[in-house]
Write a protein that binds this DNA or RNA. Structure first.
Lengths: 224, 224
DNA sequence: GTCTATATTAAGATAGAC
DNA sequence: GTCTATCTTAATATAGAC
């Protein structure tokens, strides 16, 4: 059914939709190949095994997204000053750019990232951190400059809270958007979602720091 | 190996740790029963099937947590006014109470909640919502009273962002605390973590609402 | 490169003796 | 209630013809 050299690509196209919707573990190679209209054995021929296919699916998006984010951040950092919202706004256009690259690209990418953090333990997280640690460092640099009063430990925790809110929302965005559309009788686009997420995250990260009793005996030395 | 009437409980105890760590789908009945030191067939004898076991594991925590949260919220709502932080502080003691109930109970519970939202599609979410919708309604009522300017749709999304940040943090708290302890040379308790999380969440939920271009054409009718 | 057929493994579930 | 043994299903992966 598949034309000459397009089998490899058809697998990727089918796989990303299924992975985004059902997770990596819950998507079988049989489901993928039947949706792609190719033979079961072709996955192993082209990708070796399922794990490699998973990384290929995510890698295709990361290669598109990360360089775009990097250049946004570089532009921002060249400015004299900027707000926390400016920092988080940097992800908007790289993310929405994925919609041109592929239909529903932003949603798919966000779901995949979310799945990568929860479904499989470790190997995708590691894949992302080591491959794109330069971009991630730029991001934390920007956050620090937007609010220099953040101590490293508070920063550390708040960035992880942020990651959690984003990733979780992304992973369940299909379900959440459905509920929202039923309840509020309005279509929810990826753009809407990002517009809602950004101020929430910026406010959380920039929140005043409480000197709660149990946290006063502080002595920060870390760098991460 | 298991004593007389304790097999059913031993299964539950082993299952909750494995489910929290690896997710529901990635934990087999064989792994559970071997860790529990009971026979494979006993799961089906005592619980019927795996899905029921999953619900039993989560149910045991919910029965402990939800009534405690409910009474905290009722006390709060009886007051004349209160802040957003007061609302989120209501979960502190019910959550920490789980640590007395079982070792690392708070962490396990939050991990399970997180798994329930991403691993399986739907049935656990439904289970929680229908069984404890009274408590959840109390919570949203409190949030609304703390910040009456929140429209229902913004509220909906921000509560889900909040859930994401909480669930993700608690689910990966073991790993995160280790990193933090290395980097900042200070022990991190569950209590510390909650103390850090609460102001972040409160600030996010109470953030000023932006009238972005794409969100102006609003028409809210929902009730959830 | 693509197909059929099959090997291999692992999972959920159950029957039936004790 | 608990055990052994087994059924059934479904998944990844591969061998070998074309």
């Amino acid at each position: 059914m598949a034309g000459k050299g397009e089998t490899k690509g058809r697998i990727l196209d089918a796989a990303e939709l299924l992975f985004a919707e059902h997770g990596f573990k819950d998507t079988s190679l049989r489901t993928i190949t039947s949706k792609a209209g190719v033979n079961l054995a072709s996955v192993n021929y082209h990708y070796g095994d399922k794990k490699t296919l998973v990384r290929a699916v995510l890698g295709r998006y990361l290669e598109e997204f990360m360089p775009a984010l990097k250049s946004e951040l570089e532009v921002l950092l060249s400015r004299d000053d900027f707000s926390m919202e400016d920092v988080f706004s940097c992800v908007k256009s790289p993310l929405l750019g994925l919609n041109q690259y592929r239909s529903s690209g932003a949603t798919i990418f966000m779901s995949l990232i979310g799945r990568g953090y929860t479904d499989v333990q470790g190997h995708l997280r590691w894949f992302i951190y080591t491959r794109y640690d330069d971009v991630l460092k730029l991001f934390t640099t920007a956050v620090c400059r937007a609010n220099p009063s953040l101590d490293p430990e508070t920063l550390f925790w708040r960035l992880h809270f942020t990651l959690g809110a984003s990733v979780f929302t992304m992973a369940s965005s299909t379900a959440l958007c459905e509920i929202a559309e039923n309840d509020f009788a309005r279509k929810v686009t990826t753009e809407d979602l990002i517009e809602r997420l950004v101020p929430y995250l910026a406010a959380g990260v920039a929140a005043p720091i409480e000197q709660a009793l149990s946290l006063v005996h502080e002595e920060s030395t870390g760098t991460r």
